[in-house]
Design a protein around this nucleic acid. Structure first.
Lengths: 378, 378
DNA sequence: GATCATTAGTTAGTACCCTTTACTAACCAA
DNA sequence: TTGGTTAGTAAAGGGTACTAACTAATGATC
């Protein structure tokens, strides 16, 4: 009766060529999802005719993005299918993780998220003494990895702490001692490649999103020296009015005071929960089950902060990322406190869990963002 | 260096006809934004050639959506423009507001949001006695207004309390005593028109969004018997994993207890802030400036709940909707408490304000949703 | 073993959408 | 009057995806 028309949100006109590119991206996404597939099957999945799909596939084969992988084993009557698949060796990206200054990383990542080659640098950053990270170190690291990359890479993705504007300029990054560093422009000029710069929490969230494609509404909380998060609503990563979405580390939590924070106020989320705090408690052999323990208090306060977010956005998942051993005992605390503070959901209940694979989560997310930007592949 | 390609998020193929429809919608949106405009100007705004724009406009004129409104006064050299504009009289919708059972409303609304004709019904609902609202009342009300509508209407938009699924079935609406009422199907069958059913807070948020098109990231908090909200992130209304986004009334606020709520738990947002509570305090002549006043406490608790949301989504506006006289003193309290609990923004600070025009906000929002669904006009 | 049904993929022709190019119409200014 | 500028239309062309009809290859059935 009211068939909601397929309509997109653009501010500019859609030309036939735009539709074509969209459909090409859709083919790549479908191949990534299904693996080797026949043209006929692809046509059914994407919703075009076999004729059009043959044409689309031919174009992608011509670009080297897709290749023929032989015929399928027979299953039922009819001509056996000739399968095509992503040319996975040709979809490499260079990913950079600046989230830990003492361990700057760059790596060649393939389309599955596997790290093929990695290099690291240690940078000594002391923001208090005005000694920030020299961007030239990043450029050198990128050049070094690029020199040994097996194929030309599709682009460069960089996950960095701090606030990043859409132009790829790092507006402020206290952890790196940066203010208004035009990182994208710098690396792009040095390499001549497309460069994407993103906040590290956003990159991690993108990695999680790629790993669990079913999730459309989740928050990923990254616990490190501080606390940041990435929010996915309706399958889209939230950017925010000032590109500062996810900055929850200095939100006051609770209505009963708290410790004084480095920002000068009291009761910030970071004063309740952080890796240094959890590690100190673990090293001291504190009992995590005790009601007053760091794990108990930190998980509870995180839930207090997340509850309004979960309710207002109707999220289905809360994901914790960071040192797995330290965070694992926090998960049930958060789950319990959230359940205490929210109306139970009618359908599937809220899931609270650790990130599926915390290793290299920023690197993989940065790579995924490049793939998405260049190919429309998630 | 990295020109992010125009790409849309669909799961199905984009055909040229889809692009055409998108472009037609874009013309209507642009006309709504600019008012009477020449074809040449439209072509520049939308990003197609004059030729294509003439064709698009001709099609819209043929459909009766757009009409010629004479030539412009001369301004500079060249042939004077022949202006076209939305045929505003032909873009009527029927909007229904079920948010207050004692005052069910239906109205004919034009494209500017003006209410042309209105009817009301009073329904006595007592959920505790199992006496819910008879959906036939809604159907009768719609029929009655439809009978006197000056033109055929584009569609019917209904704002209702409760949880609404994408099929237009009201899953649960305690205020109406409803469970699984297939409202869309009922009204559509009775009228033969396209029907859209939405949560009332979402409709209100849509109305606010239409009124202030610049805002892309905001939360609208509707305070009534309970508290609900609508969240807009990146210009899109958030739906949530279970179509239950915005249900913040029963989130526990604070870490220091609170009154017992109708839901059985303690410290829910609704126990701190609601219209009955504010009205009782106002009637009792309580001093709103007192630290312990209902206004002070309610505003503070709302800020406690909103702070993590504002930070995580990097919202730029918090809008309060409801009885203006009661809410007006709450605004500065919320603003102050939010500022206390958040890091100050680098750029434009957070705005806290009342809804631009609280009258008929649900009706206008429901109408806006119909326009959006049918025409792609915001 | 021949025929039929079924499925994969291609070829040929068609319809639609937007563009480029070229034109007319209408106005101002010198 | 002539030149310049802008609005709008006409005709032709290229890109995109469609339908219809075909070939190819296989299993099932008689």
């Amino acid at each position: 009766m009211s068939p909601t028309p397929r309509r997109v949100s653009t501010s500019t006109a859609v030309l036939p060529a735009d539709g074509r590119r969209q459909n090409l991206s859709l083919v790549l996404q479908t191949l990534r999802r299904l693996g080797p597939t026949s043209r006929a099957q692809l046509a059914r999945e994407v919703g075009v005719t076999k004729v059009t799909m043959s044409d689309l596939v031919a174009e992608l084969i011509g670009e080297g993005r897709v290749r023929d992988v032989g015929t399928a084993e027979q299953a039922g009557p009819g001509k056996p299918a000739t399968l095509v698949d992503l040319d996975r060796s040709g979809l490499l990206t260079l990913a950079v993780d600046l989230s830990v200054p003492a361990r700057l990383q760059a790596a060649v990542v393939d389309v599955t998220g596997a790290v093929l080659h990695r290099e690291e640098r240690a940078a000594a950053v002391d923001a208090d003494e005005g000694r920030g990270l020299d961007p030239a170190v990043v450029v050198e690291l990128v050049r070094s990895v690029l020199a040994v990359a097996p194929h030309p890479v599709l682009g460069i993705g960089i996950g960095t702490p701090g606030l990043v504007d859409p132009e790829g300029t790092v507006r402020t990054a206290p952890n790196l001692g940066w203010t208004d560093v035009a990182l994208r422009a710098l690396v792009a000029e040095a390499t001549g490649l497309p460069v994407l710069v993103t906040n590290d929490s956003d990159a991690a969230t993108q990695a999680e999103l790629s790993a669990t494609p079913g999730s459309q509404d989740l928050v990923l909380v990254q616990v490190g020296r501080g606390v940041g998060c990435g929010v996915v609503s309706g399958g889209r990563l939230v950017r925010g009015a000032h590109h500062a979405a996810g900055e929850i580390g200095h939100v006051t939590v609770g209505t009963d005071g708290g410790e004084t924070c480095s920002c000068g106020r009291r009761g910030c989320l970071e004063t309740w929960l952080s890796v240094p705090r959890l590690r100190a408690a673990a090293d001291a052999g504190e009992d995590p089950a005790s009601t007053e323990s760091v794990v108990e208090v930190g998980g509870h306060r995180l839930a207090v902060a997340l509850a309004p977010l979960v309710a207002a956005l109707d999220l289905s998942e809360v994901v914790l990322a960071g040192p797995a051993a330290l965070l694992e005992p926090v998960v049930p605390v958060v789950a319990r406190s959230l359940a205490d503070r929210l109306l139970p959901s009618l359908d599937t209940p809220l899931t609270v869990r650790l990130a599926t694979s915390p290793e290299d989560i920023v690197l993989r997310g940065a790579a995924a963002l490049v793939l998405w930007d260049r190919l429309g592949v998630v």
